[in-house]
Design a protein around this nucleic acid. Structure first.
Lengths: 201, 201
DNA sequence: TGCACTACTGACACTGAGTGACAGTATGGC
DNA sequence: GCCATACTGTCACTCAGTGTCAGTAGTGCA
């Protein structure tokens, strides 16, 4: 299969071009906001043609969320290495791997978080990615429990887990990445893991 | 305040126009899919001008999800009437009121569910509405527990609860609205309420 | 090194969503 | 009936996203 091991010159050029376009876009977005930057301006800044931009990114939103797909494969990879006996442990470990990714890019995450909530279309696109995580976790859950991946219980568990992680991320960003994302993730997972009824007042 | 009690002729005309446009749009979407229908075709079918369409709906997606805002106010209304002593009970009751809404519109829900997943932009917009429910439930939760509505615990609880309801809805649609949505809602809520750890294999 | 083959890019024209401005028409209060 | 206000239609415009095709750079092979 192509793309394995040694990336060719073409592959490397593609990856570099994609990263350069995304960087140029993020730079402009950070200066003037998502809506006020046109694709024309991005491609001029990046030194490529309009058409090339849309070969790398399906939409303008995707240019802002350029590295999310990488995050998806990281989650899928991590989930596939977990032990089926301890489902929640495997899921928890996978989420901590995602947390690592976020912590490594604190500044970029912070710069983007405001932009994401400014434009409704970006916010919606952002949620799409979380829903992909839910699918992946539901599949793993169903697999370990011998259930239908589209069934009620796996989907409920996946939604609760990803929801917990979203809450942790949100709190982390609110603290300007000062709090410990791993600790927040554990706290949020503890809430859903122990059960919501224990939070009666 | 205007709009209360007796709706004027203007108000009724607006509501009717909006409903007619949405009906014309849904009809065309059902025939040929979301992407293959242009706004021009919708406005011709509805007998209004292009500009009028965009006065009633911000985007083409919103024309398909026309009655969702109504659902949001129903949730907010229901939550505000709950007793603070029994948070989970109030939330559960509110979700059942939403379930009623869906059950009343089974055919329309079914017709739309396919369209929603066909177009990525619609699916993303759809998730936006669920995230508004999360905000509302997080606010209620925070209120009843004396916490920050944007804090970790209320957001985690809200995400888990709404996630459970989404899973129930999804399972209901998969059964072509044949299963009992209220029972599915209760089952999903029981999963998150009892705690995920109880689902170890 | 030279030659074909394939992947990628740029240029151009086009469709369609969404917006701003303004003139015309219907509604509600007097 | 008259006037202020809300609503609608028309027109012109910007910009996102797509199809096509010719040109160029990277790759495999002799």
């Amino acid at each position: 299969m192509p793309g394995d091991e040694a990336p060719s010159l073409r592959e490397r050029n593609k990856a570099r071009a994609r990263a350069e376009i995304a960087a140029a876009a993020l730079d402009l977005f950070a200066q003037r906001g998502f809506a006020d930057v046109t694709v024309d301006e991005i491609v001029i800044a990046a030194g490529v043609s309009r058409r090339t931009f849309f070969r790398y990114f399906e939409t303008k939103e995707d240019a802002l969320l350029a590295d999310y797909p990488e995050l998806n494969v990281r989650l899928a990879d991590s989930l596939s290495h977990g032990h089926a006996e301890d489902l929640m442990g495997a899921v928890r470990a996978s989420l901590h791997r995602l947390a690592d990714w976020y912590v490594e890019r604190s500044e970029a995450v912070l710069a983007r978080s405001q932009l994401i909530h400014d434009a409704l279309a970006v916010a919606a696109r952002n949620l799409e990615f979380f829903s992909q995580w839910e699918k992946a976790i539901a599949a793993t859950t169903a697999d370990s429990m011998g259930l239908d991946p589209g069934g009620l219980v796996p989907r409920t568990i996946a939604a609760a887990v990803v929801g917990a992680f979203r809450a942790a991320l949100s709190q982390w960003v609110r603290s300007s990445c000062q709090e410990d994302l791993h600790a927040l993730t554990d706290q949020a997972l503890d809430v859903v893991s122990a059960g919501l009824h224990s939070h009666r007042t």
